[in-house]
Computed example of a mutant assay.
Amino acid sequence: MYEPIRTKSVHSTVARTPSDFPHRSREEELDIQLAGHLAALLAVTDELRALAPSAELDVAAERLAGQLTRLRGASPSRAGVAAAASSTPRLDALHQRAHALAGRALVVAASRADTAAAILSAERMDAHAVTAVA
């Protein structure tokens, strides 16, 4: 009634053969995710610094860059953002975006038990929540 399978399985785990593509560990995947969220947060922070310069944002950007260097093993590439006229709706939107990115980074940092990144992410969440409301 059924014809037997005559070809090898395309599913390497089922066929118990080594796969042809590299696998990453859970820790490596979490490192990549965390670095991505922190890099995005750094980009938004740099944009905020261009629109509304402050010493607090400068310190935050340096700390974010330090965490990225630790995770990636190399310093992050940062595009210079030209100063532009600040508008309150744009600043509010950037603070909301930064708050969301910091929240995502916090979740991943907690998953990989990275205390330094979790503390930095939580601090950035607090800073952007206060600024977005004010």
Results as ranks from 00 to 15, higher is better:
Ala39Gln: 12
Ala15Asp: 11
Ala15Gly: 07
Ser9Cys: 11
Ser9Gln: 07
Glu28Leu: 06
Ala40Gly: 05
Ile32Tyr: 01
Ser9Thr: 02
Glu27Asp: 10
Ala43His: 01
Thr13Ile: 11
Leu48Cys: 10
Leu41His: 01
Val10Thr: 10
Ala15Glu: 14
Ser19Glu: 12
Gln33Pro: 05
His11Trp: 05
Leu48Pro: 04
Ala35Leu: 11
Ala35Glu: 12
Ser12Ala: 09
Leu48Gln: 12
Gly36Asn: 09
Thr45Gly: 04
Leu34Asn: 05
His37Gly: 00
Leu48Ala: 10
Thr45Ala: 14
Arg16Tyr: 06
Glu28His: 06
Thr13His: 10
Leu42Ser: 04
Ile32Pro: 00
Arg16His: 12
Gly36Arg: 14
Ile32Cys: 00
Thr17Asp: 10
Leu34Ile: 04
Asp46Val: 08
Asp20Ser: 13
Glu47Ile: 09
Asp31Asn: 09
Pro18Lys: 02
Glu27Thr: 13
Ala43Val: 10
Ala39Asp: 03
Phe21Thr: 12
Ala15Pro: 02
Thr17Pro: 00
Gln33Ser: 15
Leu38Met: 13
Arg16Leu: 13
His11Ala: 01
Thr13Trp: 11
Ala40Arg: 02
His23Met: 10
Ser12Lys: 09
Glu29Gln: 14
Leu38Trp: 05
Thr45Glu: 03
Ala40Ser: 15
Asp20Ile: 09
Val14Tyr: 09
Val14Asn: 07
Leu42Ala: 10
Pro18Ile: 03
Glu29Pro: 00
Asp31Val: 03
His11Leu: 09
Ala39Ser: 15
Glu47Trp: 11
Leu34Tyr: 08
Val44Ile: 14
Gln33Glu: 15
Ser25Trp: 06
Glu28Pro: 01
Glu47Phe: 11
Thr17Met: 10
Glu28Ala: 15
Arg16Gln: 15
Ala35Cys: 14
Arg26Gln: 12
Ser12Gly: 01
Ser19Val: 09
Glu28Lys: 02
Pro22Lys: 14
Val14Glu: 14
Asp46Gly: 10
Glu47Gly: 14
Leu30Met: 01
Pro22Cys: 06
Ser9Asn: 12
Leu30Ser: 00
Ala43Gly: 04
Ile32Asp: 04
